[in-house]
Design a binder for these strands. Structure first.
Lengths: 339, 339
DNA sequence: ATGAAAGCGCTAACAG
DNA sequence: CTGTTAGCGCTTTCAT
């Protein structure tokens, strides 16, 4: 913290070259192990670099080579473990290739997403990962014309700009409904969070209702809490459904967090699961597996999605017709014990 | 994905200048609303920029102005919600100031942390946030001599390089012990995850044992699962303690995730909380509050820590003696119902 | 195997 | 208020 003595400017590649008594381009070659140089020269350069505490300036490097090692990641939320999982997969895979993730969080706001995308693009990233397929027209235009590889995550139900990695939320909803129906539940309610912005949750619900309709059924009740997803919201939502709708046999939640809220409400009230009430979630979070009755849910390969996206982000496209623009990593229904 | 037609190179500031019929510096001034220009000129520049779909190149801008709007954030894990919370606070606050977070995850490996720090520094970030006060000697040297503002997070028990924001883990441990003692528990066990790398968990335990010792007591049993923190690990850990140590009255867990594992084990086995066994965690996660018996724990201001760190990261230091290098955001003991 | 020199796209004086 | 001119620190031809 002693800034009183103005610190000498950081060593540059030119300083290293001078100290090693070689040209700048030689230092550049040695430091990137690219091109040819004698072992002897290598020694001297490395020694000089170490001596000066040289840290290469990637900003300058990127500008000169017009090829950044930054990958932009725009996600809607960090409020539950879902996107951190995706981030984890991506960052792990990216790091292995010498890339760095730059992140932005849109809080499920399309406008903020658009601004984040614009901001990311200004860093000329090697690729841009963004959650979902729905974006403002402006954002789509920006991405489509940017020349940057765009990878859309966690949704396959719709057209993608370049590449999409994830699963079908519509199919998730359909599978969930089929499971509940197969278990004999007919009077089913839905408890979800604010759907306006979370288009993926909306698609799951759409798929769910589709299957019900196909069987001549309909949702018994439907509670949409005007708040972001949370255990509290799930609890409050179920509370309202129980107070209102009589004879509900099963509840489909917008995701596991919401379902946990419902689960603990049942526990507190002594509502026996799944006999008196069945619960079904989405995501397959770890905690659901250690509950006295494991939560019935659908597990998604979040870390794998992040990792796959990272691979696509840095992979050179060798083939002229690009690889299949859709990478379906699927999902797994976990029967559990609550439905 | 149609790359067959080689896309024209992205418009540059020079292109905009030419299109608007003004000089480059004028465009630069207008685009950054910095310096003076006539409203008329402004119009023409904005129009030209919009027409060309101009996206400024921050890489070039940074190199020219030697002031990056990137902030590096190096965290140990994304496996639970703790660091995503910090990230959320930081990204929110950073974004408001036009900064972008670049993240790296060390997986609690000091060497990977060191490499991540070096990689981040190469982007010449405005500031670097890093979790904890313990780093390799090399990493410390890198940070100390980088000329970059360093902000260490989530720990105040030890010397910081520049600034530290968080709370005292030692005090957290002490407060936890005092609480359990005050409630009359004497035969106390500890269930934790792999402590070798998680120095903050180790400090909490040290503080906890300190207080026990002051009362002439000692831990009744101590189970350290050789795995990262998780609900499963917490469950397995408590299982072993129960199988081994008889008469344990209370268990102190390394964190809430671990405690949840224990909680649900008790639920499954019909162990009445807190009469037959008391549980105490750390972090104050949301889920703990909706449990039939809210988890007794200590809540930490994670989002606030991220936000405060972001503010320090971008704040110009006006004062010569820098502000207090330690920002203690404290913690709050949540009595709950399990201890 | 190595060096010289020309940029990469922008910002920051400095003139006008 | 606006244009000209140097760089920022590196990579990349292109010679040698």
């Amino acid at each position: 913290m002693d800034d009183r003595v103005p610190r000498p400017p950081a060593a540059t590649l030119a300083d290293v070259a001078a100290a090693a008594g070689v040209g700048e381009s030689t230092v550049s070659r040695v430091l990137r192990s690219h091109g040819s140089f004698s072992p002897k020269t290598r020694e001297r350069v490395m020694a000089a670099a170490a001596r000066l505490g040289y840290v290469p300036n990637r900003i300058a490097g990127t500008l000169a080579s017009s090829g950044s090692k930054l990958v932009g990641i725009v996600i809607p939320s960090l409020a539950n473990i879902v996107f951190p999982d995706v981030l984890r997969g991506a960052s792990q895979s990216l790091e292995a290739d010498g890339y760095q993730p730059v992140i932005a969080v849109s809080e499920y706001d399309p406008l903020r997403e658009e601004q984040s995308i614009a901001a990311m693009l200004a860093w000329r990233p090697a690729a841009l990962m963004v959650a979902g397929l729905e974006h403002t027209a402006q954002a789509r235009a920006l991405m489509a014309s940017s020349g940057t590889r765009i990878i859309e995550l966690m949704d396959l139900d719709g057209p993608s700009i370049h590449l999409a990695v994830g699963y079908s939320n519509l199919e998730v909803g359909r599978a969930s409904a089929r499971h509940l129906l197969a278990r004999g539940y007919r009077r089913i309610a839905y408890v979800g969070h604010d759907l306006a912005a979370d288009t993926r949750a909306a698609k799951r619900l759409a798929g769910f209702e589709q299957v019900l309709r196909e069987q001549g059924l309909a949702l018994q009740d439907r509670e949409t809490v005007a708040a972001p997803t949370s255990v509290e919201a799930g609890q409050a939502g179920l509370e309202r459904v129980l107070a209102r709708a009589k004879g509900v046999e099963a509840v489909y939640f917008s995701n596991d967090d919401m379902a946990f809220g419902g689960y603990f409400l049942c526990l507190s009230r002594g509502i026996v699961l799944p006999e008196k009430l069945a619960l079904f979630g989405f995501n397959g979070l770890a905690i659901g597996r250690v509950l006295p009755q494991p939560l019935s849910t659908i597990r998604t390969p979040r870390v794998e999605i992040g990792a796959a996206a990272a691979r696509l982000a840095v992979a050179p496209f060798t083939c002229d017709p690009p690889p299949d623009p859709r990478l379906d990593l699927g999902f797994e229904l976990v029967p559990g014990g609550t439905a």
